[in-house]
Simulated scan of single mutants.
Amino acid sequence: MSTNTADLGAFVLRVTLGVLAFSHGFILKVLTFTPAGTAGYFESIGYPAAFAYLVIFAEVAGGLALIVGFLPRLAAVGLIPVLIGATLQHAGNGWSFSAAGGGWEFPAAWTVLLLASALIGPGAFALGRKLPGKLASL
């Protein structure tokens, strides 16, 4: 099986997005802030604490799925609502993510990149390519 540059590009995009998601979910929200701290933050901005645990799960599971290429289109689409929420949360801070509280530039770009990854497909070295039938393309 030969791998073309488009497959390699899709692979690089998929893995990069997966590492970002995983690191935000596990390193930042689990190891740094702790799940309870993340839940407390969600409550402080008006969301139910349970949303924090859903976001942590989505970022960790979705990130891992993207990294290994297991149902990567579904993983990318599943992460889009999380990033839309992050974009909306940061919208009041201005455009630049370097602004106080972080602007909406980074999560908006991340949202678009997830959509692009879902549209492009898994690319090279995707574990899901071994799945039967149409599952292999998800």
Rank of each mutant, 00 (worst) to 15 (best):
L64Q: 08
V77W: 10
E43W: 04
A36G: 01
K134F: 05
A75W: 11
L71Q: 11
G123L: 06
A126M: 10
R129N: 13
G121I: 01
L88W: 06
L66W: 10
L135P: 04
G40F: 11
L66C: 08
G25R: 10
A118S: 04
L127M: 14
H24C: 00
L79W: 02
G94P: 03
L28V: 08
A39F: 07
F22H: 02
A116W: 09
P72F: 05
H90N: 01
V30R: 09
F57Q: 12
V82L: 05
A65C: 13
G94I: 02
A91T: 08
L114K: 03
W110L: 11
S98F: 12
G101E: 02
F42C: 02
V82M: 03
A100W: 08
Q89G: 15
V30S: 03
L115W: 11
A100I: 05
E43I: 03
G94M: 02
A108W: 14
L66E: 06
Q89M: 14
S23V: 11
I45V: 15
I80G: 10
W104G: 00
A136K: 12
S44A: 03
L115I: 09
G46W: 08
R73Q: 00
Y47Q: 13
L31P: 02
S137T: 11
L28I: 11
E43R: 09
A65W: 04
L83F: 12
I120G: 01
E59Y: 08
E59H: 06
A100H: 09
G40H: 08
V55T: 11
G85T: 04
A126I: 05
